[in-house]
């Protein structure tokens, strides 16, 4: 299938952010009392599109930031199906369109913070993951959601070298997955996701380091136990399962207290990193009573 108009926010809506904010604010009912994703978007200036689409970490296509834009063009996006399994009521292999049908694609302007201490602001288009999970039915006993990226070495040249344990895997606790901020993105800047940004379907968890936001998803599995995740397996002391953006907990090799703003130029300097990447009000409750230094 091809991604058409239906998967993006109507242009007049995303071009007029003020109106969008007003509309989203009015119709908030997103499951959390008083919560509005639009409020989180206030005062954010999106990073220029060419920066968002030319500066990517997607090791399936190479380890340099420019590699994905250079090498991902040949990725076959259609047909695309997602295998939904584990503790769900309606398991099966869903064509992407079937998985999304009936759901409203929204625009969400989110901060994006990489574990490498750089940051962007991205206007995503997508559906709340919670809505997809509701659609497939969460079975009793499910506590985590595991995701897997496509493994197709003939189209993903980076998978030829064993730098990571392919396929790329990520996971969330169920309550994190169901949080209204958690998005399954199908587009950015009102257009279909470019392959280098994780087309045709990727996760966006704006309060976590970017590596949690797994790209080009082909498998979603609900589990009772915490699933293994790629970077955590590779270097557990550097990349935790939670990976919540936290300026107070450093990466062993660099500080997480501040971040470079991608697109701000050579003399852009740094800005302070915010707890939970600026979404503390919305998500801190998920981790009440947890030691975030232990569970980094």
């Amino acid at each position: 299938m091809t991604l058409g108009h239906w998967d993006v926010t109507p242009k007049d809506l995303f071009l007029n952010r003020r109106r969008f904010l007003a509309a989203a604010g009015a119709g908030a009912g997103l499951g959390l009392a008083g919560f509005s994703p639009a409020r989180a978007a206030a005062d954010l200036t999106p990073t220029p599109k060419d920066a968002v689409t030319s500066y990517n970490n997607f090791y399936e296509f190479g380890t340099d930031k420019e590699d994905p834009a250079r090498n991902a063009g040949s990725l076959t996006l259609s047909p695309w199906s997602v295998e939904v399994g584990g503790l769900v009521e309606r398991p099966g292999t869903y064509a992407l369109a079937d998985l999304l049908t009936g759901l409203t694609v929204e625009e969400r302007i989110y901060r994006f913070r990489c574990v490498e201490a750089w940051a962007m602001v991205v206007p995503w288009n997508g559906v709340p993951l919670a809505a997809v999970l509701e659609k497939v039915g969460i079975a009793k006993g499910a506590r985590y959601v595991a995701f897997e990226t496509l493994y197709r070495p003939e189209e993903m040249p980076g998978q030829a070298s064993p730098i990571l344990d392919w396929p790329y895997r990520e996971g969330l606790r169920l309550d994190e997955a169901q949080h209204p901020l958690t998005l399954l993105a199908t587009g950015l800047y009102g257009e279909s996701l470019p392959p280098q940004n994780g087309a045709p379907l990727r996760l966006v968890v704006p309060w976590k380091y970017g590596f949690k936001s797994i790209k080009s998803i082909v498998r979603i599995t609900l589990t009772a136990d915490q699933p293994p995740t790629t970077w955590n397996q590779m270097a557990p002391e550097e990349y935790g399962f939670y990976a919540n953006v936290n300026p107070a907990v450093d990466h062993p090799r660099w500080s997480q207290a501040s971040e470079r703003v991608v697109g701000s130029g050579l003399f852009g300097g740094r800005q302070d990193t915010l707890p939970f990447n600026g979404y503390e009000t919305e998500v801190a409750g998920l981790y009440a009573g947890m030691d975030l230094r232990q569970n980094y």
């Binding site: 697109g263 130029g265 050579l266």
Partner: peptide, 15 residues
């Protein structure tokens, strides 16, 4: 190139 924005969106990292 870095000053004039021709080293990509993160010139600091590149340099």
């Amino acid at each position: 190139l870095a000053v004039t924005g021709q080293l990509g969106p993160d010139p600091v990292d590149r340099l």
